[in-house]
Design a protein around this nucleic acid. Structure first.
Lengths: 260, 260
DNA sequence: CGACTAGTTGAGGCCAGTCAATGTTGGTGG
DNA sequence: CCACCAACATTGACTGGCCTCAACTAGTCG
């Protein structure tokens, strides 16, 4: 089952797109792990050259995923995890009544799909927020390789655990913060992650709609819009559609580190 | 660092209790994994006899943790994960301003402490809700052993990933459900887990105070109390302090699977 | 240009929070 | 064994933050 899923990824786009457009198309160029700019954020972090070469051998060509396309859907059989090479993804869960809750936002260098390891089935879905590219890693092959490269196994464990911590932080946010705090935490989080990637941490473009941000933060889109406007009015940020400029980082930090 | 942490666990109670009462006391009897009633819920699940014997060798004697004692605290160095042999634990996060958010409730056969793998430091704390017993597993030793027993490594990965999924479900709950739904989901969740352990799934005793339940569900204690009373009034449950009886499981299920 | 999607803003309502008083329970020591 | 106290829980009245509904604007794409 794992192999078939990965085999599918290697097939040309048209076929899979007609049946189930999970992974859009196939990239003809191969970027190797050891020359990838995300080497230090992704699974290879800290691995020695030779180990990276071995890892590289199980990484197939990158796959393109177009905006709005699903990488996997809730309930899908689990076969691979995906390293985001380029772009942004949201993960979402479906309630029994069909409501959709966005549970995370992942950017390049991060891994999605780890939620499927538990019981061989994805509990979440992952959808591209913009045209993106991922490296699909067969989980079976990854495990086999991790056995030969202990450091890779550790990195894998770390990735899952970090995702777990991310979830804990979201629970803290959803369980105990007011709308304004949630949004500020969200912005500061993005800021830090962009900075870690060498982009500006004070000026960036949101990849999500107001509605998606609202879902992620447990709010309604109007509330998100209103809070943006209020922060703008207070001179703390500048908002122009999805373009965000954080004008007063210290003040924003203070808003979430002190009560109220 | 890992070894020292585990060494501490093996020391008699008085010493560690005086300095840092992380793990209360030390049990003089040794229960072996292969005769443990939680074999099928815990890490050994599906392992062959010989593998379980090897795992057993790195499991030290059980440690007692008294009610209200911390197994580990947010920020503690990570060295071990803990299999709950007996009792119940809550995990909690601290906000920067000191607010405390309960992020989970774990019972026997479950593993806590996995959040520390990510960056070598626990993001959460774990506190016993009643007098409990845990098997502390040195993570370093566990990894070493997982290398020799691939199935154990898979189980470990599964445990972390399942915890991740648990978090996703909590996000769904916190992000999109109303007070009543949250509480019903919580009760049904407990019900299922008690049933999986051979206890009654329709009649059990809560280990948490109203305030703890409220924190876990992102509510206030008065709201929890009110919703309990309302459900009681509607004949769906029977509440007597912390004793709960679920009187109409199908109706409760229906409340959370249909919108509203 | 019209249809559509995304975003903003306002008015009003409701669910859950807040504050406060009272009741209940369980552990402790006389 | 019972009285006492503190922690836990319930209930009521009121408030307020966020949701709902709705109107309107600004881009975007066929």
């Amino acid at each position: 089952m794992t192999s078939s899923s990965v085999a599918m990824l290697a097939r040309p786009a048209t076929v899979s797109a007609l049946t189930a457009p999970r992974v859009g198309s196939y990239c003809d160029h191969k970027e190797h792990c050891d020359s990838c700019s995300l080497r230090e954020l992704c699974l290879p972090v800290g691995l020695e050259r030779e180990s990276i070469r071995l890892l590289d051998r199980i990484v197939p060509n990158r796959s393109r995923v177009k905006r709005r396309e699903s990488l996997y859907r809730p309930g899908d059989a689990f076969g691979a995890v995906y390293a985001i090479r380029l772009g942004t993804f949201k993960t979402l869960m479906l309630a029994e009544d069909g409501r959709e809750q966005i549970t995370g936002c992942y950017m390049n260098g991060e891994i999605v799909g780890l939620d499927g390891i538990g019981d061989g089935r994805h509990t979440c879905g992952a959808v591209a927020l913009e045209d993106s590219e991922v490296c699909a890693l067969s989980f079976a092959q990854l495990c086999k390789l991790a056995h030969d490269i202990p450091a890779l196994g550790r990195n894998l464990n770390r990735c899952i655990s970090k995702d777990l911590c991310r979830g804990q932080h979201m629970m803290l946010l959803l369980g105990s913060m007011r709308a304004e705090e949630r949004l500020v935490v969200f912005l500061l989080n993005l800021s830090g992650r962009y900075r870690a990637r060498g982009y500006s941490g004070s000026e960036f473009v949101l990849r999500m709609t107001r509605e998606e941000i609202a879902s992620l933060l447990g709010l309604k889109l109007e509330t998100v819009s209103r809070v943006f406007s209020r922060l703008h009015g207070e001179g703390l940020i500048q908002v122009q559609g999805r373009s965000i400029k954080l004008l007063d980082l210290p003040a924003l930090q203070a808003m979430v580190s002190q009560g109220t």
